[in-house]
Design a protein around this nucleic acid. Structure first.
Lengths: 245, 245
DNA sequence: AAAATAGTGTCTATAAGACATTATGTC
DNA sequence: GACATAATGTCTTATAGACACTATTTT
């Protein structure tokens, strides 16, 4: 433990030199999630270097001196997924700071999670289906969260926390908006909920509930797919998360 | 923006030198809350140095290379409040990382909040009523969160987030256990809820609800205070937070 | 007996959950 | 008309909230 441990942030002298002591590094990691059909998928990058060479990791980057945490998260997400200007849902998750979570040196990571519409949705903020690998040719790929490769560092813990947070938020907000295309059927919406919650919901109760919340509106259009009755298309009344009663 | 901004944590070469570039500093700030009578109180320290000399701040400290984030939070809390071994409720709140939140240099702070029983409760983990000032003779004092002195940095934002989190958690967990003494009356419990939520609750509904949750048990003892019927004393069935149905 | 707080029950309204059939399009 | 998915309503149960009086103790 170095001398810095005992310095109180509230009591720093004005001439204190922030570089007089060794600091932990700070990184930002982004759990990018998308609901594709019946799978909840996460974007992972395969490491090509030690430690954890060959293992997969959530994309992340170090925090420089002149960039807000949120900005680092947005930038990393954009670099890896190809999402453009239209802001995806991006929320800080938790900060992981165990001394030995990175075997090389002390790295404190501020984890975020992002919700993206399925790549095939055609939305401007949908990720490209082929994520962008890093400069050192590491692979980037979407994985079903229930069929994961070995994960580096404490990234399994980070991912589980992101999924738990999303599951919880589904219950009291309209965050699901961020996972769906502009227009969708109630069945697609229900499938998204079922995918994330990993359980089957009752169709009548689900529709009754959703339509009572004033968060959806019919577009008047319908989707015709196959030899059966077409489905009405809906959109969100607000493309931002709303707290539900 | 320095070169470090563009280095990807998942792609670090094994011989990367973490000290080759300037890092942000990392601090931990702890919002210590206690419910004393009809006031929710927060522990603040008065700064004696610039910037924000004379302003009040939440206690905090820098994170050294060899200490977990949670451990820094626990240590700071213990130093300032005199709480001992018996662990108070301590939970990570949010990480604040705006570039200019500290005018001196870049400081990213991981905020925690702690719930302590009232100083006069006699519990082993109750804070001393006279909090410990820092080495440079700054004052430390408990303040009603609705009657605050001017706060330094973004500490007003941190405090408001802590209060909002506590209010939310009261609704779906038994965290209130951490604010009460070992034995307490239902009226004291209700007063604690009312203080935190800043609204009056119905006595009959409150008692009906609380007693239906299997989180309280009667001690068989009663408290006699003044010219009126004595109140039964209760204790928590578990001194840890429980999720409520 | 006056004062002060402890303690208690009913009714209503709302929400959640179980449950099966009809409707409408394509091929 | 066979097939496949869309769309819909009722009943039961549990929960939340409004609401006022009696009980017990001290002084």
């Amino acid at each position: 433990m170095c001398a810095m441990d005992k310095i109180d942030a509230t009591e720093l002298p004005p001439n204190y030199d922030p570089n007089a002591f060794e600091h932990p590094s700070v990184s930002v990691d982004v759990v990018a999630l998308t609901a594709r059909g019946k799978a909840l998928e996460v974007l992972l990058i395969q490491r090509s270097e030690k430690p954890y060479a060959g293992y997969w990791a959530v994309p992340g980057g170090f925090v420089g001196m002149e960039e807000d945490l949120d900005a680092v998260a947005a930038r990393k997400l954009s670099e890896k997924t190809g999402v453009g200007e239209a802001a995806p849902y991006l929320e800080q998750l938790y900060t992981f700071g165990k001394v030995d979570r990175d075997p090389r040196h002390r790295v404190i990571t501020v984890a975020y999670y992002a919700l993206l519409p399925a790549p095939e949705s055609g939305l401007p903020n949908a990720p490209t289906d082929t994520p962008v690998a890093g400069a050192n040719a590491a692979q980037a790929q979407w994985f079903d969260v229930h069929d994961l490769p070995p994960l580096a560092f404490d990234h399994a813990e980070i991912l589980h926390m992101a999924i738990a947070r999303l599951q919880a938020k589904l219950g009291y907000t309209s965050v699901a908006y961020a996972l769906l295309p502009e227009e969708f059927t109630l069945t697609e919406l229900q499938t998204t909920y079922e995918t994330i919650l990993a359980r089957i919901l009752d169709k009548r109760n689900f529709r009754k509930k959703m339509l009572s919340l004033d968060i959806l509106e019919a577009t008047g259009k319908e989707r015709r797919l196959g030899a059966h009755r077409p489905a009405q298309l809906f959109r969100w009344t607000k493309r931002e998360p709303v707290f539900l009663p």
